[in-house]
Design a protein around this nucleic acid. Structure first.
Lengths: 221, 221
DNA sequence: CAGGCGCTGTCAGCGATTTGTCAGCTTGAT
DNA sequence: ATCAAGCTGACAAATCGCTGACAGCGCCTG
């Protein structure tokens, strides 16, 4: 984990840095606003610890400018104990957490852990099979990077096949998944659906094993 | 946005609930640990506000059990002003933020906003999508800089879609977050609401993906 | 307390899209 | 070569979402 500590008081910076390093983080330090701005804007940190009241650019503007530039890393703001109005401003400027000075190092560490823990695990759930990519979060499917417009039923079908890639899925299983317990449909409905899908995703995207079912990906001959 | 407030003191619960509702949230309340446990474990909330010291199960265990079950919605913990050691414990148990009582309602709101926007992945308090700008702090929406007067329900809808921009939001999810557990309404109520909103924000502000849901922003065809 | 107003849910009808069905065709296994 | 499984294009039916109108409700004002 890589942290940026923005703090102008050299002694505090050294102390905090020591504690953080001791806790297993890689710590870089910026002592003035310009450095901080540059580093925060160009480098990737897992967390930035930002002291308000810096020379050459105040911390609040720094934070606002990072956010305006679309930087989403977690930021923990350190500040002198202030009024709640000040805290509200800091939070709305895009701070993720706020710690009044003086603070216990344990509390700093706990909050740092919490922020880092929260920022991971936002992984995009996408499945890629051949040229086809399924973004399950956005419910969007693309072929060679080109987004396709699928109907709800079509999407459910690729999604199911994608989740069960490299496996032959029997038609009965697909019917069950697509239509639930509603038996009324002709067996051909599924075939027609597959045909329409292949037209959008490319003929090779979905394979047929005669007598067994459909599949995406690789299956033993 | 749908919130769960866990608070055993009925008067505090009523006050806080009123404030939150006024700020445009859908608020549900649990007054004891068992209810809270069940709701937090089975329902989808954008934020849980948790008072420590409940009858029948204390807040800290509640939080730990949710986390152990893999629930990672943001949780804001309310507690009597305590030692930093207690705060550290709360944070390590999985709390996302911590607010000592007594507190100013503005600060509660600011922290709630911060947690919600962070959990959906952006840093700033205003959300801009196309011509539409949502100021979550002032609860104002403008189109091309021109402020619009929205009804409370309309605001909740844009707000939710804005927070989840570039993502298709299924109608069921919207119903849940607009109406809470009161699911008595006709599906058409939502459609009517969208129609009214489009009349104010412009037809292109909110997109429809037939069979999937509504969205703001880019979800290329 | 009455009246008015704004908000929101319900209804009914309309297009447009999606999906099932049918009929004929292609393909692969034996 | 034969036959059944699977494919495809066309058409019809079902579904979904949009809209304008209306009504009930709560709230404010006079």
């Amino acid at each position: 984990m890589r942290l940026l500590l923005v703090e102008d008081d050299a002694r505090i910076a050294a102390d905090v840095s020591t504690v953080l390093t001791g806790a297993g983080y890689t710590v870089e330090t910026a002592s003035d606003g310009k450095d901080a701005w540059f580093l925060g804007d160009t480098e990737d940190y897992d967390l930035i610890i930002l002291d308000l009241g810096l020379p050459s650019m105040d911390g609040m503007s720094l934070l606002k400018r990072w956010r305006a530039n679309g930087r989403h890393m977690p930021v923990l703001v350190l500040t002198a104990r202030g009024s709640w109005a000040e805290r509200v401003e800091g939070i709305d400027a895009g701070a993720d957490d706020y710690l009044p000075k003086p603070f216990q190092f344990e509390e700093l560490l706990a909050r740092a852990r919490a922020l880092i823990r929260r920022s991971v695990g936002h992984g995009a759930a996408t499945i890629a099979v051949g040229a086809v990519t399924i973004d399950t979060r956005a419910m969007r499917v693309s072929v060679n990077g080109v987004p396709q417009s699928l109907t709800p039923l079509e999407y459910r079908l690729v999604s199911y096949l994608g989740h069960h890639r490299d496996r032959i899925v029997p038609p009965t299983e697909l019917q069950e998944h697509l239509y639930g317990d509603d038996f009324s449909r002709d067996a051909n409905a599924l075939e027609a659906l597959v045909a329409r899908l292949r037209k959008k995703l490319g003929a090779v995207a979905i394979g047929t094993r005669r007598g067994f079912g459909y599949y995406m990906g690789e299956t033993a001959p």
